[in-house]
Computed example of a mutant assay.
Amino acid sequence: MSKNTKTVLGRRAFLSGSVAAAGTIASPALAQFGNTTEVERDLTEVVKRNISSFRSLDWRPYFSNTKNGAILVDISSRVLHYWSEDLSIYRLYPSSVPLSEDLTRRGRTSVIRKVEGPSWAPTPAMRKRNPEWPAFVGPGPDNPLGTHALYLGWTYYRIHGTHDTRKIGRQSSNGCIGLYNQHIQELFGYAKKGTQVLLI
């Protein structure tokens, strides 16, 4: 084997090892936010997730003030932003969003109620689309609202947790905004009745 061949093989081995090491180091971050996700409405296929819009934002283009705190949900980038009233706290959470445009509501509302261990009942429209669904689900691991829920001023709309973590980062809800349970628990502690909410 020539010296040049050894050099080329040595470089290839180094690059292969570096790529493998980089993949190992990056995996915890990718496990949290994911560089892949299942296709919307089909949990058997895997596609790349676009997380290019998962970035911090300034509150001022969206709110005139941060009285009672402010929540911004960006449907297109599937991200929820939270700012505390005194701006000492800013959080950015990946979220699930509605399945389709006709289920999506945009505009301004506010948190009107907070519930730990929420129960769930499908809306009349959901029952019509999915007659096989149960009429009521109490708190617990089978509840679609996860461990905590923030009820909004719009009827039937909530920001809530989910026990099915595959839904986060996807179009997967019937109108609500879903977060990982650990994230909704944190947001639940920050938000209060009257916290401003804007969906764009």
Rank of each mutant, 00 (worst) to 15 (best):
I89P: 02
G34E: 02
R78Y: 00
S64Y: 13
T104F: 03
I71Q: 00
F33G: 03
P131S: 05
G117F: 09
N130E: 15
E38V: 14
S64C: 03
V97P: 00
T123N: 13
A31E: 08
N65R: 10
F63I: 00
R91P: 06
I75D: 01
I51H: 02
R127T: 01
H148E: 10
F54H: 10
S56E: 15
R91V: 03
N68E: 12
P144Y: 09
L150Y: 00
S53Y: 10
L103C: 11
P139I: 02
L87D: 08
P61R: 11
H81I: 01
T123S: 15
T44N: 12
R129L: 13
V47H: 13
P94A: 09
S100W: 03
V79N: 05
G69A: 06
F63E: 05
T44V: 04
S53P: 11
E85F: 06
W120I: 11
S95T: 15
R127A: 04
T123W: 14
L30M: 14
I112V: 14
P139S: 02
A29G: 05
S95N: 08
P98M: 11
D142F: 09
V39Y: 08
E40W: 14
M126A: 12
T37Y: 03
E116W: 04
V73Y: 04
A149G: 03
G146K: 00
R106I: 13
F136D: 00
N50A: 05
P144S: 02
L92S: 11
K67S: 12
R49Q: 13
F54A: 04
G107N: 06
I71M: 09
P144F: 01
V137A: 02
G138Y: 08
Y93V: 05
G69D: 04
N143V: 01
S84I: 04
W59Y: 13
W59K: 04
H81T: 00
Y82Q: 01
R49E: 10
S95P: 11
K114I: 02
W133F: 10
W133R: 13
T104K: 07
S76E: 14
E45N: 14
A31W: 07
L80W: 03
V97M: 03
F63T: 02
S110V: 00
P28H: 01
K114W: 03
I71S: 03
E132M: 13
P118Q: 11
K128H: 14
E85C: 09
L145G: 02
R108I: 04
P118A: 07
S96K: 10
S52Y: 00
R113K: 13
P98N: 12
F33A: 09
